[in-house]
């Protein structure tokens, strides 16, 4: 088991190195860092001196090494646009995006898994057909349109919920959270729903497909014959065997959550990392773009590492294999 985790860890390090290389190449080759930092009136000698001071004349490998070790120490450089340290900019935006992503993921699981089980157990029922049709339409409607529809219904027509910003937040030593005020929760509902809908349809369809597969297997038939109560049969014997692929997909979906959070944050003017990334693209703020990529990759790797460890908890076979 230690070997298994160690192997995954080493793979993760390589993935992070590859992403860091992309971010570094972005910084180094897209546009000239020196001309970004200096004005028109800077003389050629000053530019050359700055180039030398920044170490831009050193070999590529040395520059990359310096870039990576700076990153490890939390030094992400400065934004071309605001001249602030990128680490600060990211740190103030990170909580908003993470809270949005986590709440939408919870919504998608709390609704998606039961809906998937239900539609698999009653494949011919009227409710099932209705749910399946709804998800087909749900997949086809772009995220930003879902956001607009929700804003129109609950913000404009009914006037129940706020439609932009985070509302009231509480500062917990650098981490601003929406979870502690009623206003914060109210602001969170619409964006989280928007972001959750697509994940929800995916989760539901996957659970349904896996459930259908498992229900046909011999051990379920045998358990039925033994007279095990249906509730226990469905939710303990069957559902727990669908969890491995479901958890894998949830790990992979994390990338999707992040990507669509860019769209959601733009619709709701949610002050998260996605909005920051969009601004950085509009103003060709390369350092912020690069760091955004690295931070996203870090969370992606982290989540998938956790997923791998969850496998061992969920699937007894993996533990036995390691022991033998």
């Amino acid at each position: 088991m230690v070997y298994f985790i160690l192997k995954r860890l080493i793979q993760s390090v390589f993935v992070m190195l590859a992403v860091a290389l992309i971010a570094f190449s972005l910084f180094r080759f897209v546009g000239d860092p020196v001309s970004q930092m200096t004005g028109v009136e800077t003389s050629v000698e000053d530019r050359e001196r700055l180039r030398e001071d920044l170490g831009l004349n050193d070999p590529f490998a040395l520059q990359f090494y310096r870039f990576s070790s700076d990153m490890l120490r939390g030094d992400f450089g400065f934004s071309y646009r605001t001249r602030q340290p990128v680490s600060e900019m990211i740190a103030t935006r990170l909580p908003a995006t993470l809270e949005l992503g986590i709440v939408s993921l919870i919504i998608s699981l709390l609704v998606g898994i039961p809906a998937g089980v239900f539609t698999a157990l009653r494949p011919r029922g009227f409710a099932t057909q209705a749910i399946l049709l709804t998800t087909l339409v749900g997949v086809s409607i772009p995220t930003f349109v879902i956001g607009i529809v929700l804003i129109f219904l609950f913000g404009v027509q009914l006037g129940w919920l706020p439609t932009f910003g985070r509302g009231g937040t509480t500062d917990l030593g650098g981490w601003t959270t929406s979870f502690l005020t009623v206003d914060g929760w109210r602001s969170l509902i619409l964006p989280a729903l928007t972001l959750g809908v697509y994940q929800l349809t995916l989760t539901m369809r996957l659970v349904r497909a896996e459930m259908l597969e498992v229900m046909r297997s011999d051990y379920i038939r045998f358990a039925t014959a033994r007279g095990i109560p249906y509730r226990k049969l469905h939710f303990k014997h069957a559902l727990s065997n669908t969890m491995i692929p479901v958890i894998t997909i949830i790990g992979l979906q994390f990338g999707g959550v992040i990507a669509f959070s860019i769209v959601t944050e733009s619709v709701f003017q949610w002050p998260g990392m996605g909005l920051l990334f969009l601004e950085s693209i509009r103003f060709v703020d390369i350092p912020v773009m690069g760091v955004y990529l690295v931070v996203i990759a870090f969370f992606f790797v982290l989540v998938n590492l956790l997923v791998d460890m969850l496998y061992i908890l969920i699937d007894p076979r993996l533990r036995v294999k390691e022991a033998s």
């Binding site: 972005l26 897209v30 546009g31 992979l252 990338g255 999707g256 992040i258 990507a259 669509f260 860019i262 769209v263 990334f277 969009l278 950085s280 693209i281 060709v284 390369i286 773009m289 990529l293 996203i296 992606f300």
Partner: peptide
């Protein structure tokens, strides 16, 4: 592993640079 929209945004940003 990268969602399509992120890739497209990145390529667009690179092209702008």
């Amino acid at each position: 592993a990268l969602p399509a929209i992120l890739t497209a945004l990145l390529i667009d940003g690179i092209a702008r640079g």
